[in-house]
Design a protein around this nucleic acid. Structure first.
Length: 566
DNA sequence: ATCGTGGGCGCG
DNA sequence: AAAGCGCGCCCACGAT
C-alpha cells in the first residue's frame, strides 16, 4: 500500500456569500500563501488556469457545492479533498487514537427542495462566523488524523472517497446515454399500448381482468394488499402475504395471472412512461449519486432509482452515434475481498479464475455450484437456518481463516463493539436503545421475553457488522477502481465525433454509470479498446493497492457494445 | 391535505 | 414471510 505523494499543491476553495468564492493557496506545511476572492464569473477561468499549470488538490467543503457549476463551464478538477465525505470517515474510524472531533457543521443535510442554497447545509447550527477559518481548521484536523494512521490507509481512503465525490458529479453532468425510443418500445411490448391520461396499459388491464374474474370480484383493487389477501383467502389460496415467493408455492389458477400483473405493475410504476418523462432528457438519464450514502461506504442514489434499474431495461442504454459502451463488472467481488483480507490462501485458490463458486466446488466443500453460492453468501450474511445456514459450517473446515474473520466481526458486533473495513472505515456504534436493552437483559430479574428479544437484536447487529467489513472493503476496492479508470480516461485525446449531450465530456470518454461492482463507460468508438484496457488496468491497480502481493484474482466480465443489454 | 409506516420488489 | 446483508421507490392506509 502506497500513500499518495505528500508534496502537492493544495488550494482551498469555498463558496462565500451568495455569488462569490474564495480560493486560498497552501504550501506543503499547510500555511496560507495566497488568497483570491473570486466573483462567480471568475471561478471557472481561475480554476482552469490553476489546473493547467499545477493540477493541485482542491480542498472543498463538498464537491457537490462547487463542482456542478464548474462542469457546466467545461472545467474539470483533477484531484480533491472532500471535507464533508472525509469528516464522516475520520470521525468514526477506530484506527487512530484520537479521531476527528464530530461537528454538526460537517454533516450533510439535504436542503429542502425549494430552499435557497446555503453555504453550510448543517444540522441544527448556524453558519460559522468566518467560513474560511472554519474550513482551514477542519482541513488541518483531517490532515492530522490521516497522518496518525501510520500505514497511510486512511489517507488512501480519503483520496479515493474524494475522487468518488468528483466522479459522482461528473457522471451526473455527462449522464447515462438513454434511448427513449428503445425504452418506449420495451414498455409497449411488455405492458401493451400506452394508456391515455394515466389509464392502465392494455396488457396490464387484461391480466388484471383475468385475476378479478378468477377471484370473483370485478371491482377488486389489486394494488391493495389487505383486500387482495382477503380475496385470495376466499378462493382458498391460504397465503400469509401477497408476496410473489409465497404465491408461487401455490398451484391455483390465479397465481400465474396475478404474478404477471404484479410484474407489469412494477414496471409501469417504477420505470414506465412517467419515469421516462421525468428522468430522461436529451437522451441522458442523470440520477443524483450520493457517495458514502451507505454506512458501509457504498454509494446511494436519489431520484430515478438509479441503483435499481431493472435488467430488462438495460437495452435502452445505448451509445450515441460514433460512440460505444464499455460495460464491466466483477464476478463475486465480496468473497474475493474476504479471502484477501483474511489472507486465506485456500479461499484465494478457489477464487482463481472467473468463477469463485466453481472453485469452492473443486475444493470439495460442497457438491454443486448452487450450494457453493448459498454457502458463501450465507457466510458473509450470517445465515443460521435453511439451506444456506446448513452449508456454512462446511466452509469453516476448508476456509478457516476467512470464516474466522467474519465470525469475529459478528462477535464484536454482538458485544456492542466496532469493526472496520480494510482501509479503516468503522461501523457505527449501536444505538442507545440497543445498549440499554442489552444491559437490561443481564439483570438477574430480567423478563425471559426481554432477554430473548435482546439476544435477537444482538445477533441482528452481529450480522450487520459481519457483513460490514466485507461489503465496506468491496466498496473501497470499487472506489479505487473508479478513481483509476477516471485517471486513465483523462489522458485520452479529444474525439473527432462529439457526444453533445455529455456536457463537459462531449469529446472525452467518460464514466456513465456505477453500481457497486459494475461500471458503464461511454467512449468514442475508436477509443473503445484502449478504454477497455484502462478498465482492466484500473482493476489490477485497485487490487494491488489494497492487498499488495497477496495472490487474489479479481476478474472482470467486460464487453464492448452499443447497448448495455446482456 | 399531509405525513409516517409497512408491504412489496427492483438492484448489488 | 424468506432463510441471510445493504439500499430506493411506489402504493395503500391509517393517523393527524
Amino acid at each position: 500500500m502506497t500513500a499518495p505523494q505528500t508534496t502537492e499543491r493544495r488550494i482551498v476553495l469555498v463558496a462565500v456569500g451568495a455569488a462569490g468564492y474564495l480560493a486560498v493557496e497552501l504550501d506543503d506545511s499547510g500555511e496560507e500563501t495566497a488568497r483570491h476572492p473570486l466573483a462567480a464569473s471568475e471561478l471557472a477561468p481561475f480554476v482552469s488556469a490553476r489546473e493547467r499549470d499545477a493540477s493541485p488538490r482542491w480542498v472543498l467543503r463538498s464537491a457537490r457545492d462547487v463542482y456542478p457549476a464548474l462542469l457546466d463551464e467545461g472545467v474539470l478538477l483533477s484531484r480533491a479533498h472532500d471535507l464533508l465525505l472525509c469528516h464522516a470517515i475520520l470521525r468514526d474510524t477506530d484506527k487512530v487514537a484520537r479521531p476527528l472531533a464530530p461537528s454538526p457543521l460537517w454533516v450533510r443535510r439535504e436542503p429542502a427542495e425549494d430552499a435557497a442554497p446555503a453555504l453550510f447545509d448543517v444540522v441544527g447550527e448556524q453558519e460559522p462566523e468566518d467560513p474560511i477559518t472554519e474550513v482551514l481548521a477542519q482541513y488541518r484536523e483531517q490532515r492530522r488524523v490521516m497522518a496518525d494512521s501510520k500505514d497511510g490507509r486512511l489517507t488512501l481512503l480519503c483520496a479515493a472517497e474524494s475522487a468518488g465525490g468528483l466522479i459522482a458529479e461528473e457522471m451526473r453532468a455527462a449522464g447515462l446515454p438513454w434511448n427513449e425510443a428503445v425504452h418506449e418500445s420495451i414498455l409497449t411490448e411488455i405492458l401493451g399500448t400506452r394508456p391515455v391520461a394515466g389509464g392502465i396499459p392494455s396488457r396490464m388491464a387484461s391480466q388484471a381482468a383475468r385475476v378479478r374474474a378468477i377471484l370473483g370480484d370485478a371491482s377488486l383493487n389489486l394494488d391493495s394488499q389487505p383486500k387482495l389477501l382477503r380475496a385470495l383467502h376466499r378462493v382458498g389460496v391460504q397465503v400469509e402475504s401477497t408476496s410473489k415467493w409465497q404465491l408461487s408455492e401455490h398451484s391455483h389458477a390465479v397465481v400465474e395471472p396475478l404474478l404477471a400483473y404484479k410484474k407489469l405493475s412494477r414496471l409501469l410504476s417504477a420505470n414506465g412512461w412517467a419515469w421516462l418523462a421525468e428522468w430522461v432528457h436529451d437522451g441522458r438519464f442523470r440520477p443524483i449519486y450520493i457517495p458514502g450514502g451507505v454506512v458501509t461506504g457504498r454509494w446511494a442514489s436519489a431520484g430515478g432509482g438509479a441503483l435499481q434499474l431493472p435488467r430488462n431495461l438495460r437495452a435502452a442504454v445505448r451509445a450515441d452515434d460514433g460512440w460505444t459502451l464499455v460495460v464491466a463488472d466483477v464476478a463475486q467481488l465480496e468473497p474475493r475481498m474476504l479471502a484477501a483480507m483474511a489472507g486465506d490462501r485456500a479461499m484465494a485458490r478457489a477464487a482463481q479464475g472467473a468463477d469463485l463458486y466453481a472453485g469452492v466446488v473443486e475444493s470439495g466443500a460442497v457438491a454443486t455450484r448452487e450450494e457453493a453460492k448459498y454457502a458463501v453468501l450465507g457466510a458473509m450474511y450470517g445465515a443460521t437456518t435453511g439451506d444456506s445456514g446448513r452449508l456454512v459450517p462446511r466452509l469453516r473446515k476448508v476456509y478457516p481463516r476467512a470464516m474466522a474473520l467474519v465470525d469475529k466481526a459478528a462477535r464484536f458486533g454482538e458485544d456492542g463493539g466496532v469493526v472496520s473495513t480494510w482501509l479503516g472505515r468503522s461501523s457505527p456504534r449501536p444505538s442507545e436503545d440497543w445498549s440499554r436493552m442489552q444491559a437490561h437483559a443481564t439483570d438477574a430479574d430480567a423478563d425471559p421475553a426481554e432477554v430473548a428479544m435482546a439476544r435477537r437484536r444482538a445477533r441482528d447487529w452481529g450480522r450487520f457488522t459481519r457483513n460490514f467489513v466485507v461489503q465496506g472493503t468491496a466498496a473501497e476496492w470499487s472506489l479505487i477502481w473508479l478513481a483509476e479508470i477516471r485517471h486513465r480516461l483523462r489522458q485520452f485525446p479529444e474525439s473527432e465525433v462529439p457526444a453533445p449531450a455529455s456536457g463537459a465530456f462531449s469529446r472525452h470518454p467518460h464514466l456513465a454509470f456505477f453500481l457497486h461492482d459494475e461500471v458503464i463507460l461511454h467512449v468514442p468508438k475508436e477509443q473503445a479498446d484502449a478504454a477497455a484496457d484502462a478498465v482492466r488496468e484500473a482493476a489490477e491497480v485497485a487490487t494491488r493497492r489494497l492487498f499488495g502481493s497477496f495472490p487474489i484474482d479479481v476478474p472482470l466480465d467486460l464487453r464492448i457494445a452499443e447497448s448495455a443489454e446482456k
